[in-house]
Computed example of a mutant assay.
Amino acid sequence: MKIAGVVPTMHDGRTIQGSMSLQAIQEQLSKVGEIYPTIPRTIAFADASQEHQPLALYNSRNPAVKILNEIAKKIEALP
């Protein structure tokens, strides 16, 4: 079995714990697969879910949408 990669979610780079967790993920899991860009912690996901919409439709300008699109393109390009 192959793993396409790891997507760290709910990341908060403003805290020491968030930075330490991301560093641990990168050190431990980069051997298994690519570490994709982190998805920031944002209430926008909950807001979109409450409206029964994907974030890209609910708020297409949210920075997380751009990150998710980048990850999707990388995964689509996998052999």
Rank of each mutant, 00 (worst) to 15 (best):
T9F: 04
T15W: 01
L22E: 08
L29K: 03
V7D: 00
E34H: 04
D47G: 05
H11K: 08
A64C: 06
T38G: 10
T42D: 14
M10A: 02
P37C: 02
R14Q: 08
I71G: 08
R41N: 06
Q28A: 12
I35P: 03
M1G: 10
T42L: 10
I3C: 11
S21T: 14
E70S: 11
I39V: 15
I43V: 15
P37H: 10
D12C: 09
P37N: 10
G18R: 07
M1F: 12
P54M: 07
P63C: 02
P54T: 09
S60G: 13
N59I: 01
D47N: 13
N62V: 04
V65Y: 01
P54D: 13
K74F: 12
P79S: 14
I3T: 11
P54H: 01
V32D: 00
K73P: 04
Q28T: 14
L29W: 02
K66C: 01
G5M: 05
P8N: 02
E51C: 07
I39H: 04
K74E: 15
N59V: 02
N62M: 05
Q50E: 07
I71D: 05
A77P: 05
V32Y: 09
I25S: 06
P63V: 01
V6G: 00
P63S: 00
Q23P: 00
I71E: 12
Q50H: 03
L57A: 13
E76V: 07
L78A: 09
V32G: 00
S30D: 09
T15L: 01
G13E: 15
I3S: 02
E51Y: 09
E34V: 11
R14C: 02
V6M: 08
I16E: 06
A24K: 11
G5S: 03
H52R: 13
Y36M: 05
R41V: 02
H11R: 08
N69V: 12
A56P: 04
I39G: 03
Q50Y: 01
N59E: 09
R14V: 03
P63L: 01
Y58S: 14
A44R: 15
I71K: 10
I71L: 11
K74C: 08
R14M: 07
D47C: 00
L22V: 01
V6K: 06
S60F: 09
A46Y: 03
A56L: 14
A48M: 06
Q26K: 15
G5Q: 07
L22H: 10
S49H: 04
K31Y: 12
L68P: 01
D47Q: 14
P37S: 05
G13M: 10
L57W: 03
I75Y: 09
Q53A: 04
A24M: 13
E70Q: 15
S21M: 12
G18K: 04
A56Q: 12
R14T: 07
M1P: 09
A46C: 04
Q17D: 11
T9C: 11
P54E: 14
D12G: 10
E70F: 00
A56N: 04
E34C: 04
I35E: 00
D12L: 08
R41S: 05
Q50P: 06
L55Y: 11
I67H: 01
L57Y: 09
Q17K: 08
F45Y: 15
G5P: 08
P40N: 12
K73N: 15
M10P: 01
E76H: 04
P63W: 03
K2Q: 14
Y58F: 15
K31R: 13
L22Q: 11
S49W: 01
Q53F: 01
R41L: 14
E70L: 13
